[in-house]
Design a protein around this nucleic acid. Structure first.
Length: 257
DNA sequence: ATGGTCGCACAGCGA
């Protein structure tokens, strides 16, 4: 079973690439972030035509998440239980006994800004939601754009970034609390010492100079480790014409016995 | 080259 996460930075612009990618990779599930589409404009039919059903939760201009799947999506949940947030950043569904939660964590803009405090509050709220979800679904995959580089190994130049946004101690502590729920950074688990990025800034020729951060993460509960086959970042998609600034992060799981 | 880009929506913000 192949599952991936990709911040596409506008699904309207990236739809041809997403369709090509799904067919080339034969992915079973693709979780998207930053679709930037209202639900009325979601390309349900184009995805249906190549065999994918869609769960989507969007808004105009900003944010937006979706789960595309060749397998039936059960128990869909979009947004927070009370839908009070106003920002489309989370959706979830089950495939058999696997629970998949797709998140677009707030960027945070700058340490100590209003957006930074919103980010930390959002992550605390996510922790609460995960506690509930894990009670129901011990086999859980939390994936998406976390906008946090877990450690300095995930940063092209840790000295230059220092404790700036995406790397501040409070953000990393919030991520650690998700790990403490029993969730494991699957890329890091498979590649303990690899320096690899999933996002490269459009500015400053970031990709050409390989200046990036690993902020797109696949977190899996421990129960999934025996099924873990392979995790990689698809840099080729970031090298395409008119690319997203993020690359897809891909996971292969063996079927459960 | 010590700067530099996109996307949305149409000015300037967010990333």
């Amino acid at each position: 079973m192949k599952i991936a996460s990709w911040n596409v930075n506008s699904l309207k612009v990236r739809l041809p690439q997403v369709l090509d990618w799904l067919q080339a990779e034969e992915a079973d599930v693709l979780c998207l972030q930053e679709t930037k589409l209202t639900d009325e404009r979601f390309p349900v039919l184009a995805l249906q035509e190549i065999g994918y059903q869609s769960l989507y939760h969007g808004q105009s201009t900003y944010n937006g998440v979706a789960i595309l799947s060749r397998l039936p999506l059960q128990d869909p949940r979009c947004d927070w239980p009370d839908s009070s947030d106003g920002q489309a950043r989370i959706c979830a569904a089950s495939i058999g006994n696997l629970r998949i939660i797709d998140v677009y964590v707030p960027n945070g803009q700058a340490v100590d800004s209003d957006k930074y405090h919103y980010k930390l509050a959002w992550l605390a709220r996510l922790e609460g939601l995960l506690r509930e979800e894990l009670q129901q679904s011990p086999n859980l995959l939390l994936l998406g754009d976390f906008n946090i580089a877990p450690t300095d190994l995930d940063v092209h130049d840790p000295a230059a970034w220092g404790e700036d946004i995406l790397c501040s101690p409070a953000e990393r502590a919030a991520l650690q609390r998700l790990f403490d729920l029993g969730l494991i950074d699957l890329f890091r688990h498979q590649h303990p010492k690899t320096r690899a990025w999933s996002w490269w800034d459009y500015r400053a020729a970031g990709f050409r100079r390989d200046i990036g951060l690993r902020i797109d993460l696949l977190l899996g509960s421990k129960t999934l480790l025996p099924r873990l086959q392979e995790v990689h970042i698809d840099r080729a998609a970031r090298a395409a014409e008119r690319p997203s600034d993020h690359a897809p992060v891909c996971l292969t799981l063996k079927e459960s016995a």
